[in-house]
Amino acid sequence: MELEEIIKGRRAVRKYEEKEIPFEHAKKILEAGIWAPSGSNLQSWEFVVVRDKEMIEKIKMASPGLFGNPAMLVIGCINKERAKRGGKIGYPMAMMDVAMAFQNMMLMAYSLGIGSCPVLSFNKVILKELLEIPEEVDPILIVTFGYPPFWPKPPRRRKEVIHLEKFGRAFEE
């Protein structure tokens, strides 16, 4: 698959088929994540992979923004201790790092025919309890993975957000 096709084809998937993701593919997805760039090469991220059906069901109960029945969840976290080494900008930098890692994961997943959806609407307190995440680690984003019965239609992209040379000058007439 061409890279452009992968980038444009990936969609936020909110309906999944009852089908497991082979461990080898899960590994490829996670591997793609940790090959993302990170500020000061701190790699202040932590990823908790959840494939157990019962645990997924429990996390769903604490995540109003999580739709469908995904086969796998990846919980992206910031290791605050490690992020501190980035100074005052350490934390926001780590958020960017996690986001970049997840984009890699979602694109790798799509290239394997696997759908995904980032989920910010979850209850941090409950998630930390359920997954026994230590105090110094902050879960910031869940991404769901699974096989979609269909690929949703792409939402329109704002073209006016691209500026050429100076702010306000259209990139494309």
Binding site: M61, S63, P64, G65, S121, F122, N123
Partner: peptide, 8 residues
């Protein structure tokens, strides 16, 4: 769902 939505 209702309780976690309320917090969200």
């Amino acid at each position: 769902f209702l309780i976690t939505s309320a917090r969200g």
